[in-house]
Design a protein around this nucleic acid. Structure first.
Lengths: 339, 339
DNA sequence: GTGAAAGCGCTAACAA
DNA sequence: TTGTTAGCGCTTTCAC
């Protein structure tokens, strides 16, 4: 094993094709001018020898490394994994690779990773996390390379990509109304969580200012408790939009235990469209998908544009969410589940 | 933004310290011989200027890039995320960065990523996936660089790291026995899945050859169905070890609906210790943790050893699992949950 | 103890 | 149309 076979260099290719180094270089890069015959001869020689240009030599000259760093504090991967996939997908075809940097919430780790990336001369950095309204533990402000924030908070003048929570929440609430629900409620995570507040505001926009909004935490247990609060002492709502899938699942479970039919008596919609949850819920849950992979793809494209010197307007770009309809809200649709 | 500030080079440091390039280099790398005074003067100048050696220039000479590639087909991240964190943790302190390569199950994508990594001259590759008994869609056999398989199948003579499914399963089953359960059953995923078969065999070792083993799929729905099969027509078991957490949750939910007390009448133990599932189950679920982060850390150390030329014995290394005791099996313990 | 010079593999002026 | 040459930023003999 591990016998590092001598790599073929450009000089080998040149020699084999009977041309000079410079010609070989130009031939392979499509630059310079020469007979098609020469170019093809070089290309042929290169592929015969299985030539791979040394990226470090290239980076040394170009002052570009064709790598970007992906900083995340979401060690769980629930949110950053799709973002990563998207980024990677957008970049690999351009010959750009992605460094994974998990920084937890440790500023020291953040510094180490940042230093490593700077040392490796990444062409840019994408910051992502488990919470869109929080900053990563890293000093990203005065960097000599471009930074894109994807599902993570950056400075106001940064290029930032966020899911359109408001639009997603509106779509979910509207769906409930359109299927005839009139007594709507919203159960969500903690106040102080930007996502919770934005979704709640959007819900109120559609459901009216008097529709109940219950803040709690993001757990199934809170879903149970919320169901109890809504139903104890009378009839509950006939449509509930939840701030995440776990809460929704808690509510659906609680309703089944109370003998309340979902979606017959109550329609329930979650948020996140988290495969393991929406699929296991009985009945399968309608949920709002933040399309994080697409967000990642766009982040990849933006960092590419920035690092090749293009101008990109700063500010927050909101990407649309999609409502993925399943059985928990009445009115079936195709299962476009992602994760 | 994006004004690429002139980087300080070694020559700047040398000039500032009033020494030659060569001396500066040696001073900073702790090589060569010179007065301590000179060395310190150079180091001081370097830190004053915020000097970072250009890794590409270094890689060009050393023929090493201080990067490794992490190949995975687990786009969900359930299994590879902890492995990744572990790898990254083990490597970042050594100045080695990790390229993320998500290959899905697409051989074409695998080829692209592999080429990219070879181009970037990674010092080694770690292969991981969502299923320990399957190969990744990539030709990793005849590579000129070391490869370590972590939770993914490789050739027989490869360096491979796997969780000790058998030991984990034995511990879970033994725990049930020791807490007085005598009618044990095992409910797990599909036959043909190595993990399912190994865990089932280990279960039988402890529970006896006549203890029922039900193969199905990895879902909560299968947990429900299995509960029905075990209980319809009589008394069910008093202890159930499940092949994963979702099955276990399905069973626990089904038992509650049947009015069977967990852990009073039946103790249930899952496998994977997946935070979102074990935490939400009522009562919280005892489960086997595969310690994938530790597996990742070891993979990181191994690839480092291999790429610096050390000899590492090929073969499969099995890393111990830990039983994380919660309430679903009787006998409480501290909550050592990971994810 | 310190420095001059060669060279890692490649690209890009500039000659020929 | 092709080739010669000078670096990119660093490490490393080998003289001094």
């Amino acid at each position: 094993m591990t016998v590092a076979a001598e790599r073929t260099r450009l000089s080998d290719v040149a020699q084999r094709a009977g041309v000079s180094l410079a010609t070989a270089s130009k031939a392979l890069n499509g630059t310079g001018r020469m007979t098609t015959e020469t170019r093809q001869r070089v290309q042929h020689a290169a592929s015969e020898l299985g030539f791979r240009p040394n990226t470090h030599a290239r980076a040394l000259i170009a002052q570009r490394s064709f790598t970007v760093g992906l900083l995340t504090n979401d060690s769980y991967g629930r949110f950053s994994m799709p973002v990563m996939s998207g980024v990677s997908e957008a970049l690999v075809s351009k010959g750009v690779s992605v460094f994974m940097c998990g920084v937890e919430n440790d500023p020291e780790l953040g510094r180490i990773h940042l230093d490593a990336m700077l040392d490796k001369q990444v062409d840019g950095i994408i910051a992502t996390g488990k919470r869109g309204d929080r900053q990563l533990p890293a000093e990203l402000a005065e960097l000599p390379i471009p930074v894109v924030y994807a599902f993570s908070k950056g400075p106001d003048d940064a290029v930032t990509l966020m899911p359109d929570d408001a639009q997603g929440a509106r779509e979910a609430t509207e769906w409930l109304r359109r299927s005839g629900r009139r007594r709507l409620a919203h159960v969500t995570g903690p106040e102080g969580f930007a996502a919770a507040e934005v979704r709640a505001a959007a819900f109120r926009e559609i459901a009216g200012p008097d529709a109940p909004v219950l803040f709690g935490d993001w757990s199934e247990a809170w879903g149970h408790e919320a169901a109890a609060r809504l139903w104890d002492g009378g009839n509950g709502p006939d449509g509930i939009f939840c701030g995440n899938d776990q809460i929704a699942r808690g509510i659906i479970d609680a309703l089944r235990e109370r003998g309340v039919d979902v979606p017959g008596a109550v329609g329930v919609i979650g948020f996140d469209n988290w495969g393991v949850v929406v699929r296991a819920t009985r009945p399968p849950m309608t949920s709002v998908d933040m399309n994080l992979a697409e967000l990642g793809r766009q982040a990849g494209r933006l960092i590419l544009a920035l690092s090749s010197g293009e101008d990109v307007a700063p500010g927050i770009r909101h990407l649309p969410c999609s409502l993925v309809v399943r059985e928990s809200c009445g009115g079936a649709g195709p299962d476009r589940m992602t994760a």
